Simulated assay, not measured.
Amino acid sequence: MGQMKPSRLNTDAADATCPAHAPKDHAKIPSEKIGVLLSNLGTPDATDYWSMRRYLSEFLSDKRVIDYPRWKWQPILQGIVLSIRPFKSGAAYKTIWNNEANESPLMTITKDQVAAIEKGLKAEFGDRIMVDYCMRYGNPSTKSKVEKLVAEGCTKILFFPLYPQYAGATTATANDEFFRALMDENWQPASRTVPPYFDDPTYVEALAQSVERAYAAAGKKPDILICSYHGLPERYLKEGGDPYHCQCQKTTRLLKERLGWDDTQIMTTFQSKFGPEEWLQPYTVEEVARQAEKGNKSIAVCAPAFSADCIETLEEINEEIKESFEHAGGEDFLYIPCLNADPLHIEALLGQIKRNLSGWV
């Protein structure tokens, strides 16, 4: 009772030793460590049809994302949707793909974020903390990284879904996958999850500074800033009590107050509608066209719900939504990149990690 199976541990680790007072023939085990596991949405392994199909099948089969009854949804998904959508999504990914590293920008940026966070934690806590990342969909899987951390001697794991605002379809499903991975561990590490940080002062400051830098580089102030958040079906909020909409609105309000603006200079919209039912409104793609038609010919768009640039920002916002604005008569479209590995964003993430490690370090 109470001992890990030696086969699951990295007994060849440089710091592996026999436990104190153990028999001489006891297997060596790594010294106890704390794991910090960052989680983002995910990315296909490549842009070809089958890579896209595998990724989209896993993503769109998640009951947190599409909650239709399986008997009704799976025939539609596996038949109609996944016969067509992988081609369209693959073409979109090709326009933003990091060809040098042969990976999506989300993967590249996540690696940069992990490296910066690891450096910050090591400077303060030494080698006691291991930092790694996983994806909810695609690779590297949550399960594979939990197994790795446990094998390396992590008896405590802090799991951090990289979503500033909580939603069942993002934060909750990431946590679900983490908990499922723990179910397969005979000796489960003590575990914590990081809550949403939509109103964290350093996060809001990082957003504000990114807007100020972008406006300064453009040499003028656009007529309005659109804060575009990933959408959700309205039903999820009305029936399930999801706090996402309120948290998005608060992030925008805090950003507006920090910038010293009034309500005419900033607004909240939602993007990435999927399926026939009503989603949170206004829809970004429609709102940018309305802004152009009402005379706001210069707009900026930022994406506060995304911790890293991805297909929804680099392709959907900076290509599809931009095209909608220009088609309606808009002239100047400024996309403000996500916070990515910006030093102040890393500081905000480190602050969340350190607060949630309280009592462990």
Rank of each mutant, 00 (worst) to 15 (best):
P282G: 00
A190C: 10
G260P: 01
T173H: 02
F178G: 13
Y215M: 01
P44Q: 07
V65Y: 00
N10W: 06
E347T: 06
D25M: 14
E177W: 01
V65R: 04
E177C: 10
G2C: 12
K24W: 12
K294G: 08
A27N: 10
K122S: 14
A20V: 15
E287N: 05
S307T: 07
P337I: 04
K250W: 10
R258V: 02
G2R: 13
E32N: 14
W261H: 00
I157A: 04
K28A: 15
F306E: 12
W71P: 05
A92M: 14
P6F: 02
D62T: 02
K294R: 14
S141V: 03
K297I: 07
I311D: 08
P337C: 02
G275F: 02
K143E: 15
R213A: 04
S144V: 07
Q281W: 11
N318Y: 05
A341K: 08
K143I: 12
K220Y: 15
K221V: 11
S39M: 05
Q247I: 06
Q78G: 13
K250S: 05
I317W: 01
A115L: 09
D199L: 06
A292Y: 00
F198V: 08
K238C: 09
T142K: 00
Y163F: 04
Y335R: 09
T43L: 10
R192I: 11
M130P: 03
I129K: 02
P86R: 08
N318Q: 06
K119H: 12
G359F: 05
T47S: 09
P304R: 05
F179R: 13
G260I: 06
K250E: 13
R128N: 09
F179M: 14
P276D: 01
N102T: 09
P282L: 03
F87I: 15
A20R: 09
L207G: 04
A328W: 00
L259W: 07
P304K: 06
N318L: 05
D15E: 08
A216S: 04
R128M: 10
E316M: 01
T202W: 00
P201Q: 06
V194A: 14
Y197I: 09
Y166N: 07
E278I: 12
Y133M: 15
Y215H: 04
P19T: 09
K297A: 11
L344E: 11
V150R: 13
I129Q: 04
